[in-house]
Amino acid sequence: MLCCICKEKPATVHYTQITGDKTQKLDLCESCAKAKGALDAGGFAFADLLFGLGASQEIEQAAGGSTLKCPQCGFTQADFKKSGRLGCPACYQTFAEALEGLLKTMHRGTRHVGKVPAALRQSRETTERIKLLQKKLAQAIEQEDFELAARLRDEIKQLTPRAPAAPRP
């Protein structure tokens, strides 16, 4: 197998990137791998390599051949490819599909499991509380326990105006 970059030397370094249900393979010779920083065991070099090769293809595919542009800040996929940085927080929604695969290669998981700001934690809790009450309310109505249903309805009403709009994904 020849190196997919120089197409001269035999490929001895092999990378497999799995993005969603798509698998992408890179077969590089030692010198091309070195030039791309793929032999450096540091994760940053690995990420750069993917930014340069696999990721950009992924982003283009995700965009369906068109140029994705963040409606909030005007950042494009070309800008992302060039800098490896995003333009604004809203870019994460704009480029969500392409990022998902990239994050998989970079991180331990693709879902946040750490700290949550207190304000959001409360709204999360409130949302969950309302869901629970609505379930109970449905049960109460089914059982024709209208006294309980009225109480639950009032409680839901009391919680609802204080709950802020659902947090952005």
């Binding site: 995003l86 994460y92 994050l103 970079m106 959001l120």
Partner: peptide
Amino acid sequence: FSNDWGYLTACPT
């Protein structure tokens, strides 16, 4: 902050 992705940063790393 996003519920799925946590604190949003300039670099995805």
